[in-house]
């Protein structure tokens, strides 16, 4: 029987899933993913998790608990994914928090991913993962190369404008098959959604924010649709370096979209209790004002947020854009 590796559909899943999946599959393992977030998953997560954590971490706990049937759960200790920058400390501590708080789980694979010094240190993380699994080093190296290729393809699909989950679905097909290639989708007014990937792409946490905007007739882009160079260039306009990778991406993305006349509005999604978010939100809002005031909406989400409040704000936001479009400004 093939060994099943569980991957929670949470946190950096949306950026790295194709890479991780390819790696494990090339080693001959089967990958299982937890389902989409539901109230049940959140409740389970909130019960297991420490009280002070932010909503996405609570949700991630719930996803881990969904993977009890797997033979192992892949919970990398993500320290840094980019030289000179860090990932949120809660990610670093996540595997240990899970180990402390959740019982009856299959063994956890908690390899360190730390590219703080060098981009190339990624191989060390994969080779360590392979060693834990007892795989042949040559096979591990081959799987790692394939994983990098899958990641590159995922990134290029994102930069083409696909949402991560659509990109995952499209992984085996030519991009021309995707829904975005249709003329009517391409010609819609564009709204940028800026936020942590695990908030904006998780339909439960974001209350279907992206779908709602699409239903209201917009095309949605996020910071993940921009190239690393663009993000760095725009984040570089700040007087100081932002050393959280995600915060840097969000701010860089927001600044880029603010200077793009094709973008008709900007939504910033923050998790309540997230320190960096409260700062990036404020930074972005100031730039919105300084750069001519595009329609802007700052949404703060937590587990108590009612859908009605989000819907009302979103409707008012889309009305604001539509009225401006109608008046031709």
């Amino acid at each position: 029987m093939t060994i099943k590796i569980g991957i929670p559909r949470a946190l950096l899943f949306y950026q790295y899933f194709p890479m991780w999946k390819t790696f494990f599959e090339k080693l001959g393992l089967q990958v299982v993913v937890s389902g989409h977030t539901t109230k049940g998953i959140l409740e389970k997560g909130a019960r297991l998790c420490v009280d002070e954590a932010c909503l996405p971490v609570k949700v991630a706990f719930g996803h881990v608990a969904e993977l009890k049937e797997a033979d192992s759960i892949f919970l990398p200790r993500l320290v840094s994914v980019s030289p000179g920058e860090y990932i949120c400390p809660k990610f670093l501590g996540f595997p240990d928090m899970v180990k402390q708080c959740a019982q009856d789980l299959p063994p956890l694979i908690m390899t360190n991913f730390n590219q703080y010094r060098r981009e190339g240190d990624l191989y060390a993380a994969f080779s360590e993962t392979g060693r834990v699994l007892g795989s042949n080093p040559a096979k591990v190296y081959f799987a790692y190369r394939e994983a990098l290729r899958a990641h590159k393809r995922h990134t290029s699909l994102l930069q083409r404008g696909y949402m991560p989950e659509d990109a995952v679905k499209l992984a085996g097909e030519p991009p021309e098959k995707g829904s975005l290639e249709q003329e009517d989708v391409r010609s819609r007014p564009v709204v940028a959604v800026i936020g942590h990937p695990y908030n904006i792409y998780d339909g439960f946490i974001s209350m279907n924010l992206i779908k709602r905007l699409e239903k209201a007739g917009f095309r949605v882009v996020t910071q993940d649709h921009l190239s690393e160079e663009t993000l760095r260039h725009h984040a570089g306009r700040l007087p100081k370096k932002l050393f959280w990778t995600l915060g840097r991406n969000m701010t860089g993305g927001a600044l880029h979209y603010l200077s793009d006349p094709g973008i008709k509005g900007l939504v910033h999604v923050a998790s309540f209790a997230c320190g960096p978010d409260s700062m990036t939100g404020e930074l972005i809002e100031r730039f919105v004002r300084r750069m001519g005031g595009k329609p802007f909406l700052n949404l703060t989400l937590d587990e108590h947020t009612g859908e009605a409040g989000v819907v009302t704000r979103l409707e008012a936001f889309t009305d604001m854009i539509n009225l401006r479009l109608a008046s031709g400004s």
């Binding site: 329609p295 703060t300 009302t312 704000r313 009225l323």
Partner: peptide
């Protein structure tokens, strides 16, 4: 004459 910005109290 057009809405340029708005805010609503949270919880």
């Amino acid at each position: 004459g057009m809405v340029a910005d708005f805010a609503m109290n949270t919880v």
